[in-house]
Design a protein around this nucleic acid. Structure first.
Lengths: 181, 181
DNA sequence: CATCGTGTTCAGTCTTGACAAAACAAACCG
DNA sequence: CGGTTTGTTTTGTCAAGACTGAACACGATG
């Protein structure tokens, strides 16, 4: 219960100046909304994206009902979307002994990014299947085959490099998450 | 006018066996539908994706009305979506002297891919803005700053490598498009 | 000029999915 | 037991946008 109750903000106490705090608040708002938009592009509900944004900016786990207040959406939406993100491994639900309420924090997200890799791999695979079906053709090696090759090469290279970026970053900050995946 | 008129298929004449042709046809169908789904993920109309798929598989430019027949959608949809793709630089409208009709062919697509790069850059930028706003804070260097750094680094690295892939592939097959972009 | 061929635009339908309010479930508390 | 707190599920509403048929524009052609 020591956590901020009345303030709608994640209450970083001991703020330097009121002005700085205000602009910070505005920036947070923008960031959160931007995250909402981004995730909408990735076919996730906007609220889920805002949730991610808010949790990125929150050093400590945030209470369920604070999420609803802060984002000004219904508890129903929070419930739905937190569970969605939880299942995707993007956020984590944490509880505290002697506290019935649920808190949420962000996972050092591999979840969202692995999704992207999967999409790329799927595209590569789809083109590869087509290429295979094309093979028995006599005039293979035609422009169609070339295009498919291009497509395949592009997406496989892309997925590979994405993977290696992920790996590099994981090894760099090492071990923050045990990550049961 | 030498191009296939009556057949709904892109009529690669001199097919090896009827069986092979059939499975090829099925594979094409699957590929086209898959492209439809993929592009839907990227917030483009499904028909636009199918269009891309069909044009990838078509060695020669395809007539406007053949597109409608083959995909079994209205001519209105073809009109809308071809123009959309044309504006994005994904396909190209070609005409022939003495022929009133419009034909379409795929561009060795940088268009679609540049879109992805842009999205990544936007995400990076958004996190950078947030990081800036965070700077005047006393307790900067906290976990929030770390997360933002991670985010920034990830997307910038990703966009960079994507760009270099694009460049590599462009130089490899060299010069297929003058590309006024 | 009437008509046809070709592509575009407009107006309406239909689907999809996000979101919220309310009913619900379950754990706790008196 | 009632009543409260906390989160979930269900049900309905609403908006966005894809797609279509029909009207339209406009050049070609007899």
């Amino acid at each position: 219960m020591t956590v901020s109750e009345p303030t709608p903000l994640p209450d970083r106490s001991a703020e330097p100046t009121a002005a700085a705090d205000l602009s910070l608040h505005a920036a947070e708002e923008r960031f959160i909304e931007a995250m909402g938009l981004m995730h909408e592009e990735d076919r996730l509900p906007r609220i889920a994206g805002r949730l991610v944004g808010l949790l990125i900016l929150s050093p400590d786990p945030v209470r369920f009902d604070h999420l609803a207040e802060r984002l000004r959406v219904s508890r129903a939406s929070i419930s739905t979307n937190t569970r969605l993100l939880e299942n995707m491994g993007v956020i984590q639900r944490v509880t505290r002994p002697g506290d019935r309420r649920d808190y949420f924090q962000i996972n050092q997200e591999p979840g969202l990014l692995l999704r992207i890799v999967d999409r790329f791999r799927a595209r590569q695979a789809s083109a590869e299947e087509m290429k295979q079906a094309l093979l028995p053709e006599p005039g293979a090696g035609g422009i169609v085959a070339e295009r498919l090759d291009w497509f395949i090469r592009f997406y496989s290279t892309l997925a590979d490099s994405l993977n290696s970026v992920l790996a590099a970053m994981a090894s760099r900050d090492g071990n923050s998450r045990p990550d049961p995946a």
